[in-house]
């Protein structure tokens, strides 16, 4: 499943420019706690979150994540989006709530991106 498929499936709006929408994503991680993302997310996975502050982009950068999906219509401001574009991060927003977002992606074949190793 690539980023374009995910965007269509969630009826999401793409917020960043120059995305590589053909990038394949194998797993997803959902959390509003960046501490947990930093502890457990796998690289090249996609983050689903309801938290909307610049540290979401920084966390995704450090973790080498492929993209971020903001749920329930939470829209990052332009400063956050510029940061995401500098990093090369694909950012989208869906109107769906967290559970439905995760459910749709899981049913479409994405699995949890949990890494217990460093």
């Amino acid at each position: 499943m690539n980023l374009e498929d995910i965007c269509k499936l969630l009826q999401a709006t793409l917020l960043t420019k120059n995305n590589n929408l053909k990038k394949v994503v194998h797993s997803a991680f959902s959390s509003d706690m960046m501490s947990d993302v930093l502890a457990y997310a796998k690289d090249d996975s996609i983050l689903i979150t309801g938290l909307c502050n610049p540290q979401v982009m920084r966390t995704a950068e450090m973790m080498d994540l492929a993209g971020v999906i903001f749920i329930r219509g939470k829209k990052p401001d332009t400063t956050m989006l510029h940061l995401a574009e500098d990093i090369g991060l694909c950012v989208m927003v869906t109107e769906l709530p967290m559970f439905n977002t995760c459910g749709k992606l899981f049913c479409a074949g994405l699995n949890g991106g949990v890494s217990l190793d460093a």
Binding site: M33, M34, S35, L38, A39, L51, N53, Q55
Partner: peptide, 12 residues
Amino acid sequence: SLGFGAGMGLPN
């Protein structure tokens, strides 16, 4: 509320 303070920083 900013997404940190879960007690994972130093262990991480």
